[in-house]
Amino acid sequence: MQHLKLLANDNRGLNELENGTGLVGWNEVTQGSILPSFEGDATNIAHLKSEERTYSGYNSYTATVASWRVLKPVYNRDICIDCQNCWVWCPDSSILSRDKQMLGIDYDHCKGCSVCVEVCPTNPKSLIMFSEQTLLEDALTQWPEKKKKEDK
C-alpha cells in the first residue's frame, strides 16, 4: 500500500498562486491558456498507472476533497471478492485497484457518497460507511455479522 501514497495536499495550487511561482490569478488568465496536466512528456499516459505518472501541480489529482466527507467508507479485505463493482461505479476514481485486486480507498479524492457501499454484493458488505472520525481499526472490529436469509 505504501507505494500508492498520494501526493494530495490541501492547498497546493493555492500556495503556488500566493507565492507567485509563475502562476497568474484567475482574473489574469487570457483566452487560449493551457494548463498542462503532467510534467514533461505525456504521450504514453494511458499505459501508466497513477503512481508511475508525473502529475503537475495543475492536475486535480494533487488536490483533495477529503473535507467534503461526513461519512467515510471503510474497506474490509477479508470479505471482499474483488468483483470491482465499486471500482467501475465510483464517481471520484477513489477505488484503488491493481492487477484485478481491490487494494483500498483513496481518501484524498473520496467524497463519501456511499455508492460503493450500495453496489457491494457481498454479505455482509465489504465496504461500510463509518463516521469520518472513526479509526479504521475500530471500524473493522465493529463489522456486522453475516445476515441470514429470511425464512419464507
Binding site: 499516459i45 497513477s50 486535480s60 463493482n85 467501475v88 492487477d99
Partner: peptide, 20 residues
C-alpha cells in the same frame, strides 16, 4: 469487470461534481 479494472484512469478525482 476484473479485466476492465486493469485499465488506467485518465479522469482524475478531486473534481467538484456532487458526491454520487
Amino acid at each position: 469487470l476484473k479485466e476492465f479494472s486493469t485499465s488506467n484512469d485518465r479522469f482524475e478525482g478531486a473534481h467538484t461534481l456532487c458526491p454520487g
